[in-house]
Simulated scan of single mutants.
Amino acid sequence: MNTKDFIIKTVLLIIAIIVIVGGWFSLTTIEQQEVEIEKLKETTQRQKNQISFLKNNNQMKTQFYKETDNQKIEETINLFVRSVFNVQEDNYKERRSNAERVLSQELFKQIFSDESEKLLYEHDVEDLRVYTRLDRENASAYLIFNHTAKNLANNKSNKIRLTVEVLLRKEEENWIVVNFLQLD
Score class of each variant (00 low, 15 high):
R101E: 00
E94K: 02
E75K: 07
N70V: 10
Q47W: 09
D69K: 03
T76Q: 10
F85D: 09
R96N: 09
M60Q: 14
Q71K: 00
Y65V: 01
I51F: 04
Y65G: 03
I73H: 03
E75Y: 04
R101A: 03
R101D: 00
N78A: 09
Q45H: 10
D69V: 01
N86I: 05
L54Y: 08
S52A: 11
D90V: 12
E89H: 04
R82K: 15
N70L: 03
Q47V: 12
N58C: 11
K93H: 02
S83H: 02
Y92I: 02
K55H: 13
S52E: 13
A99G: 01
E74W: 06
K93C: 04
L54P: 04
F53T: 06
R46F: 12
Q45N: 13
F64Q: 03
E75S: 01
K48P: 02
L79F: 15
Q88E: 11
R46T: 09
N56L: 01
N49D: 14
K93M: 01
Y92S: 04
I77A: 03
K55L: 12
K93S: 08
D69A: 10
Q50G: 11
K66F: 01
E94A: 04
Q59K: 08
K93R: 05
F85W: 11
N91W: 00
S97E: 11
M60W: 15
